[in-house]
């Protein structure tokens, strides 16, 4: 449909022509779910299928984004389409919020409801020796009524998570500096601060990886450490994964900036990644207080 538009003007609507990307992504996903489902059940070939799927998926994603960037730089995206992207990114982030809400909800339920109940008088007929103490209250507690969970220590807020908090908050700041620089058309400065942001993000991921090693090695805190371990690792794990994705987004934006993409007026790609980064930031603050402090 782009063809109907006289050269040089942005079209009112943008409807891309036929594209093989969507179907290819679906094909990749087929191998992903086929493989993942088999792999978790111990079928070795599942891992290869999963890998194949991810490779297909990533390579299609790469081409897809390449096309989209070309369209964007080719001036096919009008202001209206810019608005579409904004809406879509906002609601995508909202859906992510709801995903985390499920896990925060699980944490809330386990702590405020399930655990005290398992330790109450009625439940003594099932778990006579169980004292409902949320493990963060003291080392050695297991949060496991059946006593099947090995003793572990909890991960306090100090020092790693606090360092990570500082890293993420700083990265939010540096990202904002970069944004202002972009608006002021100071490209070199933008790129500089973007690199700083990316590095801060990467450091966060590194620190978190170290924290996990520490948990497994020194604290005996594992995914299987009862409900504490479950919520701890699933919340911080999904968050860490999102940091990784956000960091990659920022990285690609930086590379695009270096290629001369974006203008002071029009840079939704930048902003979308920035929103995502701030979202990841906010989730972290929630984690920092609810998981590490309380």
């Amino acid at each position: 449909m782009a063809a109907t538009t006289p050269a040089g003007s942005t079209p009112y609507y943008f409807v891309p022509g036929p594209s093989r990307h969507p179907a290819m992504v679906a094909l990749g996903m087929f191998f992903v779910i086929l493989g993942a489902g088999q792999w978790v059940n111990g079928a070795g070939w599942g891992a290869y299928s999963l890998l194949l799927g991810v490779v297909i998926w990533l390579s299609v994603l790469f081409q897809w984004f390449r096309d989209a960037i070309a369209e964007s730089e080719g001036g096919l995206y009008s202001d209206r389409i810019d608005v579409s992207f904004r809406w879509s990114m906002s609601w995508f982030i909202f859906s992510e919020v709801m995903f985390f809400a499920a896990f925060f909800g699980a944490l809330y339920w386990a702590r405020v409801h399930a655990l005290p109940m398992l330790g109450n008088l009625d439940h003594q007929i099932l778990w006579p020796d169980f004292k409902a103490i949320w493990p963060s209250a003291g080392g050695g507690a297991t949060a496991s009524p059946a006593g099947t969970v090995e003793p572990f220590q909890t991960m306090g807020p100090w020092p790693l998570p606090t360092i990570n908090t500082a890293l993420l908050l700083t990265s939010g700041l540096t990202l904002t500096i970069a944004h202002h620089a972009l608006i002021a058309n100071q490209r070199a400065k933008t790129i500089f601060w973007m690199w700083i942001t990316v590095i801060l993000g990467a450091t966060f991921v590194g620190v978190q990886a170290y924290e996990y090693m520490h948990a497994y090695r020194d604290l005996n805190l594992k995914l299987s450490s009862g409900i504490f371990g479950s919520t701890f690792f699933m919340l911080t794990g999904f968050h860490g994964f999102h940091v990784l994705v956000g960091m990659l987004m920022l990285l690609f934006i930086t590379l695009r900036l270096m290629k001369g993409h974006f203008t002071p007026q029009r840079h939704f790609g930048f902003e979308g990644a920035a929103w995502y980064w701030h979202f990841v930031d906010v989730v972290w603050l929630g984690l920092y207080f609810l998981v590490y402090w309380l």
């Binding site: 978790v40 059940n41 699980a106 339920w109 386990a110 409801h113 399930a114 655990l115 109940m117 398992l118 949060a143 496991s144 009524p145 059946a146 099947t148 969970v149 594992k222 995914l223 299987s224 009862g226 409900i227 504490f228 371990g229 479950s230 919520t231 690792f233 699933m234």
Partner: peptide
Amino acid sequence: HFGTSFFNPAGGGDPVM
């Protein structure tokens, strides 16, 4: 598959959750 106990009371989880 990964040893968590979200819904397993023996580990402090809750099927009703």
